[in-house]
């Protein structure tokens, strides 16, 4: 699940890029061996062969003709590939649109049109259906970030004031890791996310769950009260409650996500508690304060239990 390997692909474009990489490595290896072979012959070869290599025509053949032929072929191949990468899936549904906004140091993910007059908002996790083109519309709220899901496609930068698009498609269900690849400040290293590809019915079911507002059964009333008293709603939104701030991630379905802290830790009640208590220990420099001094033990357990129950 933690794989971020370029060759561990999950979709057609990822496959194409992996194939391209192998092609380049193969070609590069041949050229490397050839050049070193020439060098060895030049140093230790038979006198007759060395005389051939010592001719200026050898420079023209090896230094001009060979690279021109090889690189022209590579250029044509690349151009063909560049076309293929942009093509929509033949006969497929219209692409699904998902907006991803980079923040220092987390990802806001929006699904426009999934709710009347808006869409569900999650964080640090992109859920997509398999077998369908998905257009990621990416931008950033503060500094430049870059979105990279090596299993599916290459990077696309998230630049404030600019919306970039990258079309991805997963063929097979599964979870894969992605990460920010443009240096974005102190905790650039801890700005990861998960992509979960699911079969279309499973995806629809997930979407339906996400559409529901947050519920607070009686056993979690205390957690909700702690959330209110600690001022968490000053930064976070929980749909179905009075809190609608957009500074930090939307917590409506926090417990259903795979990680907390943008890929820093696995998601469970314990790590939620640890994150709330010591966000600055776990990821120094991120914008969430540590609440260890503000909450006592039972309060911390109550609020993390409530948040964990939101799925």
């Amino acid at each position: 699940m933690n794989s971020q390997n370029v060759f561990d692909t999950a979709g057609p474009d990822g496959d194409r890029l992996a194939t391209l990489a192998w092609l380049l490595f193969g070609g590069g290896l041949i050229l490397f061996v050839a050049v070193l072979g020439f060098l060895l012959v030049a140093l230790y070869g038979a006198a007759r062969v060395r005389r051939t290599l010592g001719n200026p025509r050898f420079i023209v053949a090896g230094g001009i003709v060979m690279p021109v032929v090889v690189l022209t072929a590579l250029l044509l191949h690349t151009l063909g590939l560049a076309r293929a990468l942009g093509l929509p899936m033949p006969g497929g549904e219209p692409p699904l649109r998902i907006e991803v906004i980079g923040h220092q140091f987390w990802w806001e993910v929006r699904y426009p049109g999934t709710l009347p007059g808006g869409g569900i908002v999650t964080a640090n996790e992109i859920r997509i259906p398999t077998g369908r083109d998905v257009v990621l519309e990416v931008t950033a709220s503060d500094v430049i970030h870059s979105l990279w899901i090596p299993a599916l496609h290459g990077k696309i930068d998230m630049i404030p004031g600019l919306v970039n698009r990258r079309t991805i498609r997963a063929d097979r269900p599964g979870a894969m890791r992605g990460q920010c690849t443009e240096f974005c400040g102190t905790q650039h290293a801890l700005m990861a996310f998960m992509v979960v590809a699911e079969t279309p019915p499973a995806y629809e079911a997930w979407l339906d769950r996400q559409r529901l507002p947050a519920a607070t059964p009686p056993q979690h009333e205390m957690g909700r009260a702690v959330f209110a008293a600690a001022g968490c709603g000053g930064c976070h939104a929980v749909r179905g409650t009075e809190w609608d701030a957009r500074i930090g991630p939307d917590l409506t379905a926090l417990g259903g996500r795979l990680t907390i802290g943008a890929g820093t830790l696995p998601m469970n009640e314990g790590t939620i508690a640890g994150w709330i208590a010591g966000a600055q220990d776990l990821k120094p420099g991120n914008r969430m304060p540590s609440f260890a001094n503000a909450l006592d033990g039972p309060e911390l357990r109550a609020v993390s239990a409530w948040l964990e129950s939101l799925k």
Binding site: G45, T52, L53, G54, G63, I64, V68, L71
Partner: peptide, 29 residues
């Protein structure tokens, strides 16, 4: 991007010329 990709290829050629010139010089001495 493709313009710049092609330009990057173009700059590889003169570098290749130098590498082969060194090899040729070694071979002839």
């Amino acid at each position: 991007l493709a313009f710049f990709s092609a330009a990057s290829f173009a700059v590889a050629v003169p570098t290749g010329v130098q590498v082969f010139a060194w090899i040729a010089t070694l071979a002839s001495g």
